[in-house]
């Protein structure tokens, strides 16, 4: 009798442990199931080439997500991310048009070292990020509104810069080979085992952000600020300073992502990056970042981005209508968060 009871209890505990495990890694299961489902429909999906394509597609998104993710962790949000990507794309490509291209924005400009325009884009976006941070921390404007404002304003600024005589609102093209090579070339031993440069860069950024979040005072502080701002304040954390850093780092990320996006696609217009902020926020949230702050990990954000790339690429691969893809994406956002939130609800 007692024996029976203990077995029943053991089973219950077991089931609970399995449940907890499933919940903890729910998002990774979704990821794997998604790939299995697509492969089941189209076995050729499992190829190195497809995965390389998915990774290249993800690279700039990963960098944007790293920026937005840090801000979400502070309990904030950043709607200006996409427009900043556009700003960075326009700035960097305007400075890197090939010397023999007839319609150069700056005809007198010599051949710049590759790094200069990228740094320029990052500095400008970093400055906008700093402004975001100042508006949020000093003027106390809620992040949603603050970055909604800068989102609109940045688009205006990008368009002013972009739509000028003599060429007006023409896409900036004819980019320097070195630049486009950075965007579409890869590093590898042979043709099969290789990784695109931008993927390497994105992974490098992810690693840096992981170290920032987990190994530095700044990282620990943003989790505390997002988790309980008052607690951070009375523990002597300089909330303003940490918010400024988080928004500035995010701006730097968007700047880099924008430059790489221009390099990858071989051009830029003022509409580049439109809507990327929502994709990045969705990816973070699907990856377990809480929009109310204080929760989120870099591996989670990575998987979040990859899930969306796999959906985009994989569902197109199996010839699903793009309209249906949108519906699937929407459902996944909601389902992932509904699942993820169980982690925090079940211990009431």
């Amino acid at each position: 009798m007692a024996n029976q009871e203990t077995t029943a209890l053991g089973e219950r505990l077991n089931r609970r442990a399995v449940n907890d495990f499933m919940l903890k890694y729910a998002i990774y299961f979704v990821f794997v199931i998604l790939i299995i489902a697509i492969t089941f429909k189209e076995p050729t999906f499992l190829s190195i080439e497809n995965f390389r394509n998915i990774l290249s597609m993800s690279a700039t998104r990963i960098i944007i997500a790293m920026g937005v993710g840090g801000i979400l962790i502070t309990g904030g949000t950043d709607l200006s991310a996409g427009r900043m990507v556009g700003l960075a794309a326009v700035i960097s490509s305007s400075m890197l048009q090939a010397l023999d291209y007839p319609r150069r924005m700056y005809p007198q400009l010599g051949e710049l070292p590759l790094i200069v325009p990228i740094i320029a884009a990052m500095v400008v976006c970093g400055a906008v990020g700093l402004v975001n941070g100042l508006i949020v921390s000093k003027l106390r404007v809620p992040p949603f509104i603050a970055t909604l404002g800068t989102m609109v304003a940045v688009y205006g600024a990008t368009s002013l810069y972009f739509d000028r005589p003599p060429y007006g609102a023409q896409p900036i093209g004819g980019l320097d080979k070195r630049f486009t090579n950075l965007g579409s070339g890869w590093l590898g031993l042979d043709g099969r085992l290789s990784l695109p440069y931008i993927v390497l860069i994105a992974l490098g950024i992810a690693l840096i952000v992981w170290v920032l979040h987990n190994k530095t005072t700044f990282g620990k502080n943003i989790y505390a600020i997002g988790g309980n701002p008052e607690a951070a304040k009375v523990s002597g954390v300089n909330v303003t300073k940490n918010l400024l850093i988080a928004y500035t780092i995010a701006g730097l990320c968007y700047g880099l992502a924008g430059a790489l996006e221009a390099a990858r696609t071989g051009g830029a217009t003022n509409n580049y990056g439109n809507g990327y902020e929502l994709d990045a926020i969705a990816a973070c949230v699907v990856g377990g970042v809480s929009t109310s702050g204080g929760i989120g990990t870099v591996p989670g954000m990575l998987v979040g981005v990859l899930i969306f790339s796999v959906i985009n690429y994989g569902l197109t691969f199996v010839n699903m209508s793009p309209y249906w893809q949108q519906i699937v994406k929407g459902a996944i956002i909601i389902a992932a968060v509904a699942l993820d939130i169980r982690k925090y609800l079940n211990k009431r």
Partner: peptide, 21 residues
Amino acid sequence: HQELLSVPNRSVEENLWLGRY
């Protein structure tokens, strides 16, 4: 503090040394 100012989704030690890691 009266109102128990702590960060629930962080570890015990991270709460203890918050502001002076």
